[in-house]
Amino acid sequence: MLLLVLSPLVAEFLLGDFPITKVAFLLFVLPMYGCGAILIREIVRRTGRGWPTMLVLALAYAVLEEGITTMSLFNPNYAGDHLLAYGLIPAVGMSPVWTIYVLSLHVVWSIGTPIAMVEAVAGTRRTTPWLGKIGFSVVAAFFVVGVAVTTASSLYQYPFVASLPQLAGVVVVLVALILLAIFLPRLAGPRTVLAGSAPSPWLVGVVGTLAALAFQLVERYAQALLPAWGLTLVFVVLWVGFLVLVAFWSAKPGWNGRHVLALATGAILNYAWIGVERVATGDVIGPLKVTPADVVGQVLLVVAMVALIGWGVFQLRKAGDTALPAAALNPVTH
């Protein structure tokens, strides 16, 4: 299944953690990323819910990975990068800057964007379940294996275990997010629709691209200019503003799959330039060494992603691309 491969490709390879020429690493990260994305999408579509539930479960995935599997939310020396040094709150052993940033990466890029792209390619089947009971059980089993393997690997590479209160806090947050996903409304009932029409997918794509670009540039350059609380506030403002705007747009008649794909396109374009830059400068996960073939491969990966988006646009048009509440990021659905 395309989503099985696309999620880890975007999360790790398009970002430039691994050059695409080291694609063998895909087998290691595929069970957790790919199976996690499939499970989230399948649960949402089987229960008749939409993108609000999808994103809540994506956040739960992010908390699981970074809070328990890698424990990067608490490890001050994770990957040797001192990720918590900027904005560390000693009382909880966390940095809000790193927490918001890394969880956002998973919600938007690891889970949300691959699902949006694959659903677009699916055309008329984009909001229907894709797995039977056996298939769902197999994917769930591989996901559990992936979580266990990734956790063991992380503990081996970076010997660190979060404190009991920290781990308990992660469990509480996970339970809260799962309960929130359960109690979010289904899409079968009446839907709030605002006056006017949804904007052009082109405008949505431009805004999504600029929002993702602002998020990445702020994280990269604002640390030298702002205190940690200031950057945290900027992150919150960016997120709240973007979600409110998309919720407003998606509540208007005419919002459909092309709008969702436009948002995913903005996310892909931002990961694309970051990944090419990282591979070109050798800023990949050590001890990997970059060769000219890696740079060429990274550019070809970007081209393949753009081609996949184009295929999604074609499939949506072929399917009629009617406005479907299930395809909308619409928190006001009730």
Rank of each mutant, 00 (worst) to 15 (best):
L261V: 03
L261T: 02
A262W: 09
A262F: 08
A262C: 08
L263V: 06
L263N: 01
L263H: 03
L263C: 00
L263I: 07
A264W: 01
A264V: 05
T265Y: 12
G266P: 03
G266N: 03
G266T: 01
A267W: 02
I268K: 05
I268A: 08
I268W: 06
N270G: 12
N270V: 15
N270L: 05
N270F: 05
Y271T: 06
Y271S: 07
A272K: 02
A272L: 05
W273F: 00
W273E: 00
W273M: 01
W273K: 00
I274G: 04
I274V: 15
G275Q: 01
G275Y: 05
G275N: 07
G275H: 10
V276R: 09
V276L: 10
V276D: 05
E277T: 15
E277V: 10
E277N: 14
E277R: 14
R278E: 10
R278N: 13
R278H: 11
V279I: 14
A280I: 00
A280S: 09
A280K: 00
T281Y: 10
G282T: 15
G282F: 11
G282R: 14
D283Y: 13
D283Q: 15
G286S: 11
G286W: 04
P287E: 06
P287Q: 10
L288A: 13
L288D: 13
L288S: 12
V290A: 08
V290N: 06
V290L: 11
V290M: 11
T291L: 07
